[in-house]
Each structure stands twice: as structure tokens, then as C-alpha cells.
Design a protein around this nucleic acid. Structure first.
Lengths: 118, 118
DNA sequence: CTGAATCCAGATGGATACTG
DNA sequence: CAGTATCCATCTGGATTCAG
């Protein structure tokens, strides 16, 4: 019995760690918006995203894109133009986020109506 | 045509805002762990959660619980004991999070294997 | 065009001590 | 027991400037 409880708690800890991993990859003020911008168009250039995502600075955009790239959620491609341009696109792994984003969106809508729109 | 594009972009903005609302409610270093602790046991006391969630301080626990309560995700009940004890439980609305947490957990597991376990 | 570097204000969070 | 108060270090993110 004690063993069963322990196992259950172990499972619980693993779940929590996984959720935290996911949250870490998605946290940051602009990541979701950046991902949305990119996946919305397929491919997107730095300056395009800068325009899409209202309020983001180049400093933040650069930083968050770098993190997304580290997490293999977006792919960065430098084009041999003059001056250079850079294209960002979602990786296959990044695309698996759409399901989560969709769920978050649905829940967020309900939540907003519940809290703000009361 | 231009109208259709505009409508699409409007929709996209709404989605992004909803996702952001959801993320706001869930962000914070301990919220997920706190919710997990509570929903795992049904009802949970302050000091219990303090023990469940490794590393959290009473200061942070208090703060995050207050935010969760504001977002109507947990319900706080003071018991007339001496000294007083306080019970926390998930609200109905808070319970709707389980689906999201489950999705996040699944994705987080895949993500961890992809990034860390390579 | 795509960033990196610098500076700086405000938010976040830990440690500790204290209260009803 | 369940917080609150205070102090302080670190992190976050904005504005601006510079560079390849």
C-alpha cells in the first residue's frame, strides 16, 4: 500500500516536471505571439515578425527567437541577399505545439469570460 | 479578399489574446505544482502544500495561492480550529485545467526527450 | 536588414523574522 | 497554523545606440 502511494507520488512528480518543462519552453512575454506569427504565414522574416507582434522590441524578439531555436521549435535560415535577410519557420516539433496552443486558446477564452466578463 | 485577410488576422489576434490570458493565469514558478498538489488530494491545507511543493517558501505560496484564488481556480476555506487551519480546493473552473495540464505534460515529456535526452 | 551592446527601471523571488 | 513584513539579489524587459 505504502508502495502504491509512493509510486503515485512519483508519477505526480514526473507529470509536474513535464508540465514545467513545457511551460519553460513557452513562457516569456512574446513566445506565443512569435510562434503564432510564424506558423500563420509558414515562413516569416525578422522584420515581419517585428511588425506582426505588437509592442515587441528587436532586443526581445531576437532573444526569444534564440530560445525558441534552442528548443528546436523554430528553424532559422539566413538568405544570401544583400543586405542579408533571415527566415524563420516552425520545425516539425514546433508544429506539435498547435494542439496545445489551441487548447490554451479555448481555455483562455472561457477563463476571460469567467473572470473579466463577470 | 482584403477583407477576408483582415478577418483572419483579427481572429488570430483574438486567439493570441486568449492564449496569453491562459498563460497569465498559469505562469509563476509554482502555480502548476500548487494546483497539482491540491487536485491530487482534493483538499489540502497550507502547510501540506508547503511540504508537497519542494522549494516553495511560505511567502511565495501565499502569493500564488492568492492569485489562483483571484482567478477563481482555487477556493479558500478557513476552518474554525484553534489555531486556525485553512483548506484549499480546486473550483469547478480550476478543474477544467486538468485537460490542459495533461496536454502540457504529454508535450513536455516529448519535448524533454527531444531536447535534453538527445 | 538583423541583430548585439549598453544602460537602467521595475518585477520577481529567496531568507529571515514577526504577528494573530 | 497561516500568513505578513522587510531586506536584498537577481532577472526581465524597454529604449537607445552601434555593427556586420
Amino acid at each position: 500500500m505504502k508502495c502504491a502511494i509512493t509510486e503515485f507520488q512519483q508519477e505526480q512528480k514526473k507529470r509536474m516536471r513535464s508540465v514545467q518543462d513545457a511551460m519553460d519552453a513557452l513562457s516569456g512575454k512574446w513566445k506565443i505571439a512569435i510562434i503564432s506569427s510564424i506558423c500563420c504565414y509558414g515562413k516569416r522574416r525578422f522584420s515581419d515578425i517585428l511588425n506582426d507582434v505588437e509592442g515587441v522590441s528587436n532586443r526581445m524578439l531576437s532573444k526569444e527567437l534564440k530560445e525558441l531555436e534552442l528548443n528546436q521549435l523554430v528553424k532559422r535560415t539566413v538568405l544570401p541577399t544583400q543586405p542579408i535577410t533571415v527566415e524563420y519557420e516552425l520545425t516539425e516539433h514546433g508544429n506539435t505545439l498547435q494542439r496545445i496552443i489551441s487548447e490554451l486558446s479555448d481555455w483562455g477564452t472561457v477563463h476571460r469570460n469567467k473572470i473579466i466578463g463577470k
